[in-house]
């Protein structure tokens, strides 16, 4: 164990505090003004995509990362070939 890890081991409470603040800010809707804005965006974006393209659920990959300064929502939609697209 080096000095740095020894130091870190003694300061786990501030980590807990920060994790909770970020999590609860999202759950209470402080970030973005609505409870879990990122989750709502996910639903609505997927609904819009489905309105235009037949998408198999298997071909949609969603990743989220809720952070203090920046949250990311990553939606990867595999759009089928031209023959299958409804217009």
């Amino acid at each position: 164990m080096n000095l740095l890890s020894f130091f870190n081991r003694r300061t786990s409470a501030p980590v807990a505090r920060e994790r909770l603040q970020i999590l609860l800010a999202h759950e209470r809707g402080i970030v973005g003004g609505k409870p879990d804005l990122v989750a709502q965006l996910r639903e609505e974006i997927l609904a819009v995509v489905r309105r235009h393209v037949m998408v198999e659920q298997d071909n949609v990959q969603v990743k989220m990362n809720r952070d203090a300064d920046i949250s990311t929502l990553e939606i990867e939609v595999e759009i089928p070939g031209p023959a299958e697209i409804r217009i």
């Binding site: 970020i22 999590l23 989750a39 659920q57 990743k63 989220m64 990362n65 809720r66």
Partner: peptide
């Protein structure tokens, strides 16, 4: 921070297990 879908989504068929 990485939770996207959950057990209920999978139970109700709104999401695939892998998602």
């Amino acid at each position: 921070r990485r939770v996207v879908f959950d057990l209920i989504n999978v139970v109700q068929g709104d999401a695939k297990l892998n998602q």
